[in-house]
Amino acid sequence: MTIVIPTPLRVFTGGKDSLDVAAGTIAGALEELTTVYPDLRKHLFRAEGKMRAFVNIYLNDEDMRYLPEKEATAVKASDTLSIIPSIAGGVA
């Protein structure tokens, strides 16, 4: 499957905007990503290993949080996993 790396995290991937990995689940794909690029880990996960709250993971067009099996969801070679830090703010 293909993992799409957002602009702010490309500094940790040598500028690459995607990585093809062979993994069976979303968790497996993220594990491979952070094995290839260890510096990414702390930007995606908190110290205790949970995903940082502002990091959105989408399997194709589906938010991982709303998939019944979440990180354990099975993935296919043709799937795309997008890492999307949230975009928000405002006056107040």
């Binding site: 702010p8 830090p85 703010g89």
Partner: peptide, 16 residues
């Protein structure tokens, strides 16, 4: 930028 803007901005290296 407001305090909220900074707290909720996560795209380091990008422009707002």
């Amino acid at each position: 930028w407001s305090r909220t803007d900074l707290q909720e901005s996560h795209w380091v290296g990008c422009v707002y």
